[in-house]
């Protein structure tokens, strides 16, 4: 394959039976919004800490119910706990949201390509998140905060449906106050008491406090949002070669064997989910790919 860019950081594959989940126990649960929750998990095999790279995902299994791909939302430098943040929308995630401390889930992973954090060093970073697209970006934010000095200006542009859909609000305050991350939030629909921005997330892009000529962008959200965010970033003069997006498709295996996640020639599970924008921009512009 000839691509203009290298695949984002590849991560070593775990050994063992590829379709058999490894049990993880729930140590804490946290309700983020009315329909979104975070599970804090710990491997039941103490000798095998869980390490991952920001942007990777796991196949998360609820005993006898099913398995779904969910990105990892925790700190890559904290190998003791594995965090998943999900919205209760399907059979598996609804069941997952009803689980509590001490319950056990199955984990296969981590899978997929990671965010290009090494490439982002020395650059400004703009992170654009739509809705449930914020959790897959949080590991990158943790990583950037830990090595804050190695990055230039860092700007998070976050769009939620309504003020009550905003994820991690208190945490975002900390990111803003203590870690020098510029956080801009907008909502699609306002509610009583909301004094912030109203409108789609792309309306925040002109506000981003970055140097377009030396910026790396990471975008996660619905496909249409990523498409328009990329176009808006291009308008600001950002080099398309420094824009990255994270794609989503149906997945049954996570390891390139089930065929479900194909996006043109790419298997989202192993070639992605993080892709350089240049590599997939033509496909992004087509419907029903």
């Amino acid at each position: 394959m000839t691509f203009e860019h290298e695949v984002a950081t590849k991560v070593a594959v775990p050994d063992g039976l590829p379709m058999a989940p490894r049990p993880f126990v729930i140590r804490r649960t946290r309700r983020e919004t009315y329909d979104t929750f975070t599970l804090e998990l710990e491997s039941t095999i103490k000798t095998k800490p869980f390490s991952f790279a920001p942007g990777q995902f796991n196949m998360v299994y609820v005993f006898g119910v099913g398995e779904v791909p969910i990105s990892i939302s925790g700190d890559p430098d904290n190998m003791d706990k594995l965090l998943h943040t999900a919205r209760a929308v399907g059979t598996v995630t609804k069941r997952m949201s009803a689980l509590g401390k001490g319950d056990v889930l199955g984990i296969r992973g981590p899978f997929g390509a990671a965010w290009p954090l090494a490439e982002a060093k020395g650059k400004d970073v703009v992170i654009v998140a739509g809705g449930i697209g914020l959790p897959p970006l949080r590991p990158s934010i943790y990583s950037i905060m830990r090595n804050r000095g190695e990055y230039g200006r860092v700007c998070l542009l976050y769009g939620a449906r309504t003020p009550s859909d905003i994820l991690f609000p208190r945490e975002m305050e900390t990111w803003r106050k203590k870690h020098g991350i510029d956080v801009f939030i907008t909502v699609d629909r306002s509610m009583k008491g909301w004094k912030g921005n109203v409108g789609v997330v792309t309306t925040l892009i002109p506000k981003a406090t970055i140097d377009p000529l030396n910026t790396l962008a990471m975008i996660v959200g619905p496909e249409v949002m990523m498409r328009f965010s990329a176009l808006e970033l291009l308008k600001r003069g950002i080099d398309p070669a420094t824009i990255y997006v994270s794609m989503e498709r149906n997945m049954k295996c996570g390891i390139g064997l089930c065929g479900h996640c194909q996006f043109g020639p790419h298997f989202i599970c192993k070639d992605g989910p993080v892709f350089p924008y240049n590599r997939i921009k033509e496909l992004l512009m087509k419907r029903e790919i």
Binding site: M19, A20, P21, V25, T44, F63, G106
Partner: peptide, 16 residues
């Protein structure tokens, strides 16, 4: 069949 698993006191285990 890809695997079977059994519930136990600690959650479940995959029957290797």
């Amino acid at each position: 069949k890809l695997f079977s698993a059994s519930r136990n006191a600690k959650g479940f285990n995959v029957l290797k």
